[in-house]
């Protein structure tokens, strides 16, 4: 995969921004505002928020696999080790101290 230009590395703790705006948003509602970590860096990809409106998708955005504990997202109810993993673009993430 191509080298990534984004801000994060595997293991970094992140918060997903809670954004609610018009447009084609590929960050599911259920993880917005939630805390997780960078599981894997996938590289730079055309930005679907722009492609969806007939634009060229540039500049590219780094895409990450972001991990979340099940309990952080949905509360209890599944196994104690269960995780939800979502592909999320750099501009949706904030560093978490």
């Amino acid at each position: 995969m191509t080298p990534a230009s984004g801000r994060f590395n595997p293991g970094d703790r992140v918060t997903v921004k809670f954004e609610d705006r018009p447009g084609h948003l590929r960050t599911p509602w259920y993880v917005r505002g939630k805390h997780g970590w960078i599981e894997r860096v996938y590289g730079d990809f055309l930005n679907p928020e722009l492609l969806a409106f007939g634009k060229d998708g540039l500049p590219k955005k780094t895409l990450y696999l972001v991990g979340f504990d099940y309990d952080e997202v949905f509360g209890t109810g599944q196994g104690p080790k269960d995780k939800v993993l979502v592909d999320i673009y750099d501009h949706w993430l904030e560093p978490l101290a």
């Binding site: 609610d20 948003l25 599911p28 509602w29």
Partner: peptide, 11 residues
């Protein structure tokens, strides 16, 4: 705004 009708994960 609110979550879109397609954005149904976890509902």
């Amino acid at each position: 705004m609110a979550r879109g009708h397609h954005d149904i994960g976890g509902l």
